[in-house]
Computed example of a mutant assay.
Amino acid sequence: MELEVRHLRALCAIADTGSVRKAARLLGMTQPSLTTQLQRIENAIGGELFTRERTGSRVTPLGRSVLGRARPIVAEMNALIEEARSAAGRATGSRLWIGSTNSRAVPGWLRRLRARFPDVDTTIRTDASPNSLLQMIADHQLDVAFVHEVAGAPLRIPEGVELRVLVPREPQFVVLPDVHPAARLPVVRLVDLAHDQWMVDPSVDGELTGLRRVLAAAGINPRMVYGDYMTAADLVAAGEVVSPCQPTARARPGTAVRPLEGDPLTVRLMVACRAGAAAPPGIEAVFGDLAAAYREVAWSCTAYRAWLVRQDPPLPPFQLPERLPVPVPVPQ
C-alpha cells in the first residue's frame, strides 16, 4: 500500500480530534471505513500509530514521528487547494462556504446571504461537532462557521481562527413528554426530572460534560442514554426520555419545551472565520445576517419569547458580534 495525501489527512484528523469516530465525521466517512483505513496504514508503516483507549485514540511515539512528517505535507496540499479554489472563484464569480452546528437560524441565514450576494455560490456544511467546524475553517475548507460552546467545556481554537460572540449566554431548555407532570409548569426544576431517563448526544462537543455537571450540581444522578437528537425527539414523544434542547426548538406532537429554573445549562453562540486579512470579503454583512436570522427565530418561539421578555434587558444583544482575541497556538 502506498500512502496518499488522503491517508495523511486521516491520520491528522484522528490526532486532532482524539477519536476515530469524530475524525470520521470530520472527513465525511463512516467510522468502520476509517478504522479499516487506519489498520491498512499501520500495516503499511509496520507499527501502531494510535493506542485505542476507552476515551479515544492516543498517539504513539511512532505516530508522533509520522505526524511530524505528515502535517507539513497536508498543510501544503491545503494551501494548494485553497489557491486553486480562489483562482476558480475569481474566474467564475465568487463562492462562500459556511458551516454550522444544528440551528433553526440557518435557513434564514442562507436566505439573507443569497439575497445579499446573488452572484455568490453559497454552500453549507453542517456538523454536530463545533471543534470539527473550527478545524475546517483553519484548513480552508470553510469560510465562516456558526458554532456553540457549552459553559464549562471550552472549544479547541486552531491557530489563525477568529471568533466573535453572537449571544454570550443562551439558555438550554428541556423537551419532555407533554403528559409529564412537569410539562404543566412554565419553568421546570431539574429535581422535577430526577427520576426520568435523560438522553444526550455525546458526539456534540461538551454537551455530555455540561449536562453531567449541572445534574451533579443539582444533587441528582438520573439514568442516561446516548443517541442523536432526532432519535431523542421520537423517544421523548413516546414518553421514554427527557432531553436538553435549544430554546428555539419546536415542540413536536406529544412533547413540550420548557425552560429550566435558574438556567443552569447555557451555551455561548459564536461565529468563526480566518483572522485578519485571511477573512472572506463581506464578513461583517455575513455576521449581521446571522444575527438577524437568529433574532427572527428567537422571537418566533413561544417558550423562548416568554423567557426573553422576563430578562433585563428583555432582548439579548444582537448587534454585530463582539470580536474575541485570536488564540495563542496550543502545542499538539
Rank of each mutant, 00 (worst) to 15 (best):
L3M: 10
E4K: 09
V5P: 01
H7L: 04
L8F: 04
L8Y: 11
R9W: 03
C12K: 15
S19G: 09
V20W: 00
K22R: 14
Q31M: 06
S33E: 09
Q37A: 06
Q37K: 09
L38K: 05
E42S: 07
I45A: 03
G46A: 12
G47H: 11
G47S: 05
R54K: 13
G56A: 06
T60P: 10
R71N: 05
V74A: 07
V74Q: 02
A75M: 13
E76M: 14
M77S: 10
M77K: 12
A79P: 06
A79C: 03
E82D: 15
A84S: 12
A87I: 06
A91C: 03
T92V: 14
G93C: 15
R95D: 12
R95S: 14
R95W: 07
W97M: 13
N102Q: 15
S103T: 15
P107G: 08
W109H: 12
L113M: 10
R114C: 04
A115F: 08
R116P: 07
F117S: 03
V120A: 08
R125C: 10
T126S: 12
N131K: 05
N131D: 04
S132V: 12
L134S: 00
L134G: 02
Q135P: 12
I137T: 01
I137Y: 04
H148Q: 13
E149R: 03
V150A: 11
A151R: 15
L155F: 09
R156V: 14
R156W: 10
G160I: 06
V161C: 08
L163K: 02
V167C: 13
V167Q: 08
V167R: 03
V167N: 11
Q172S: 05
P177G: 10
D178Y: 00
A182S: 04
A183Y: 00
P186C: 09
V187R: 07
V188H: 01
P202A: 01
V204F: 03
P222C: 03
P222H: 11
R223C: 14
V225A: 14
G227L: 05
G227T: 02
G227Q: 10
T231K: 13
L235G: 07
A237R: 05
E240G: 07
E240W: 05
V241Y: 15
V242N: 07
S243Y: 03
P244Q: 06
P244V: 05
C245M: 14
C245H: 05
A251Y: 00
A251F: 08
P253M: 15
P253V: 01
G254C: 00
A256K: 02
V267N: 03
C273E: 07
R274W: 04
G276S: 06
A277N: 13
A278N: 13
G282L: 01
E284D: 14
V286K: 00
G288E: 04
G288I: 13
R295D: 09
R295W: 08
V297M: 10
A303S: 09
A303G: 01
D312P: 10
P317Y: 14
F318E: 11
L320I: 13
L320E: 09
E322P: 08
R323T: 10
V326K: 04
V328E: 13
V328F: 08
